[in-house]
Design a protein around this nucleic acid. Structure first.
Lengths: 217, 217
DNA sequence: GGTGTACGGATACGACGTACAGATTGCACC
DNA sequence: GGTGCAATCTGTACGTCGTATCCGTACACC
């Protein structure tokens, strides 16, 4: 068993394990077993489990595609945003890692660099580029929380205001009529379409700001 | 020691412990000690640790303020969005819980209900309300990841493409000139101002869509 | 007063992350 | 070819975790 261990190889095995069993299901012992070696061997390549998870995140982020160089900035942003979302959807169990660890390796930063390039080529200055990147990052990360964290799903938990077992549906409907009315609508929508909706609003806003600054310049 | 235990009391103690020591620092044993009782006592009120964390999240969400009823929908949304952000900033160690557990108790849903009310009163139909809520939720949750998860901070980790210790700064600058150029700008911005920037873009978009649908109706 | 039921405590189990102390390997240098 | 050193990997062990299980207690209700 046991090809030579490498950082990449270990991180890939960890990603595979997470894809299969979830993040909570990953332990150093099980990972080592998959790799045909001893638990502590991993610590030669990663100082602790958190660093390993970071490594897995970098692996995910490196999967994000880079847009062609010659397209309009709007298309480039759409391309990148969709690609991030698709990577997360290919690895639903691992997607939290994307929210938790920002890209910081060259491979993981490739798509960021490409996005920046696209903005700058279109005439965005440094500040506008930073601003837009931040807004897109926030929207994108939040989308992952919502779509892959099951944010809008029905896992009714307990706890209420001091009394047990309240929150029977009829009572809730009286207290929260609009939540009751709108939640089904929320759940019925297509995730991809809703993602695009908000994305276009942001891109529209960027375009407006750009054209305004053109006119003043 | 030991007032009578309650769901609320336990959740509050857990929140206090998390505020002090972080989520990872919270254990059932330490929590029980703070409460002056035995670890297993908590399990009378919460089926497991995850349910307890959910309870803490509900507590946080219940801290979100409800906007006055008579203001313009745009002001109401600003109000709510800012309040969510401020709650998270009061509990930086606990803020991940907001991303992980959606509101589902009456108290935690109060601000959602108020937001829906504001949209509907302004003439948004069910679908538009759901759409806008989703976009705002995504932006808001992503903002928490970025501002409180330290997303843009410098915690340089390791792992690269197969080789160790690369990613010395000069090399990075060659490979990723724009990342190198723009990252300082990104870090230098004021979090609150950047948050408002993206928020206004979304609100502008909602307003446009509204006025367009008025004209067709 | 007797009985059931909600509550809290004690103990224990299995799994976890990882510190530490060797063993093993491969390679540089004479 | 031998010798030493550094990197790599293994084995063992410690402390901590979540929580299953079993038991005692106290109070509500008839």
């Amino acid at each position: 068993m046991a090809e030579k261990l490498t950082q990449m190889g270990i991180a890939q095995a960890a990603l595979a394990a997470i894809d299969a069993d979830g993040i909570e299901g990953l332990s150093m012992r099980k990972l080592a077993q998959n790799l045909g070696s001893s638990p502590m061997a991993v610590y030669t390549y990663f100082p602790d489990k958190d660093a390993l998870l970071d490594g897995v995140a970098q692996l995910l982020l490196a999967e994000v595609d880079t847009p062609p160089e010659d397209i309009h900035w709007r298309d480039a942003m759409r391309f990148i945003m969709r690609s991030v979302r698709h990577v997360a959807m290919r690895h639903p169990n691992a997607s939290r890692l994307i929210n938790q660890f920002p890209p910081h390796t060259p491979d993981a930063l490739a798509f960021v660099e490409a996005g920046f390039r696209s903005f700058r080529r279109a005439g965005f200055d440094e500040l506008s580029t930073a601003r837009c990147y931040r807004a897109l990052a926030a929207y994108s990360l939040g989308t992952l929380d919502i779509e892959l964290g099951g944010y809008f799903s029905p896992e009714t938990r307990t706890i209420t205001s001091e009394t047990r077992d309240s929150m029977d549906t009829p009572t809730a409907a009286k207290l929260l009529p609009l939540v009751t009315e709108i939640t089904p609508t929320l759940l019925a929508q297509d995730d991809a379409a809703e993602f695009e909706y908000g994305l276009e609003l942001l891109l529209d806003g960027f375009a407006d700001a750009m054209s305004r600054s053109d006119r003043t310049a």
